[in-house]
Amino acid sequence: QEPLTASMLAAAPPQEQKQMIGERLYPLIHAMHPMLAGKITGMLLEIDNSELLLLLESPDSLHSKIEEAVAVLQAHQA
């Protein structure tokens, strides 16, 4: 998959935009948390698309955002 760009996103309707981002986010999250990947991706997709694009381009900030979401999810499930 080639990297997702803002112009590619802008060309797609809003529902498609979240789907495009989710399809790229999911494998990255799955590599870290296979069991929680679906839920964590769902949580991160609530962030606005411009920030998500930035996260997709910076692994370190994406990793900390994923760990933050895992903590929130586990607290929520407790």
């Binding site: 809003p14 529902q15 979240k18 789907q19 989710g22 399809e23 986010l25 999911y26 494998p27 679906g38 839920k39 964590i40 991706t41 769902g42 949580m43 997709l45 609530e46 999810l73 929520h76």
Partner: peptide
């Protein structure tokens, strides 16, 4: 939200149910 089905789970290849109520 404190609902049980939060967060809406994403599954590759399937439309994400979390949209449009975000």
């Amino acid at each position: 939200s404190s609902s049980v089905n939060w967060p809406p789970e994403f599954r590759p290849g399937e439309p994400w149910k979390g949209y449009p109520n975000i």
